[in-house]
Design a protein around this nucleic acid. Sequence first.
DNA 1: TTTGTCAATTAGCTGA
DNA 2: TCAGCTAATTGACAAA
Length: 270
Amino acid sequence: MSMGQEDTCGTNLVLGLSYDSHSGHGHGETIVKLERSSANMISLEPSLTLGLSSDTHGSTMAKVDGSKAWMEEGSRLARQSSPQSTVSMFSHTKTKRENSMKSDETERVSSRVSDEEEEGNARKKLRLTKEQSALLEDKFKEQSTLNPKEKQNLANQLNLQPRQVEVWFQNRRARTKLKQTEVDRETLKRCCESLSDENRRLQKELNELRALKIASPLCMQFPAAAAAAALTMCPSCKRITTGSEGSKGGGFVVAPRAHFFNPFTHSAAC
DNA sequence: TTTGTCAATTAGCTGA
DNA sequence: TCAGCTAATTGACAAA
């Protein structure tokens, strides 16, 4: 797409493009600072049951090469007497780094096999409660990343494992980015359309001015008339320009300079 | 080397 | 049944 067009036909005409920014385009979500007292802290009942309550005992284990942590937790929980606890479900979730430790791996594999034989372990999916999600959302609005201490505190508040909080924030950032990418794409699309329209309009205007110049030799004899004919208004800054502005040869000038819109800074250099 | 983050991906759950 | 959402995993990469 051409943003501006230099005169290449010896007419001394110069085109400038402008673009009106879309008002009110905010980047991403509004960040709201929340003041939360300890009284607002939510005491949450763990509602997630990866558990191996009686009705899940018969379910089949996920693929052997599936989530190691889940399998381990599932099998571990099977030996526990309080299967409804989310905390207990995740209290020993292994990180990938931990998982990479070979001795640990060997131990896990062996226990996994035996657990599979003992009971089918279905990889149940955790669903956060509304309260948990709300609190996580609130925290995310405050800050999109957490340091280890904050993570631990939030995890305690939510009765979740720090790793779960970390994963939630990770996924949340990914969703935000995806959404923002979509917004940016739409903005750029509109910007492109607008610039194309403007370009067409200015091309038309340029052609008219060229035709005027050719069809009016009178103007050549009366420079004042030529200058008047060249008067035009910059659509961006609303300045009326004349042939005496910004041109070396005193020819026609439509705009003193081009106005390029940057959709990310929302500014037009005028 | 460790640690944190990201992108890509997998897979369970849910509502239409 | 299937698409969409999302919790969770994996591997790569950068910074300290």
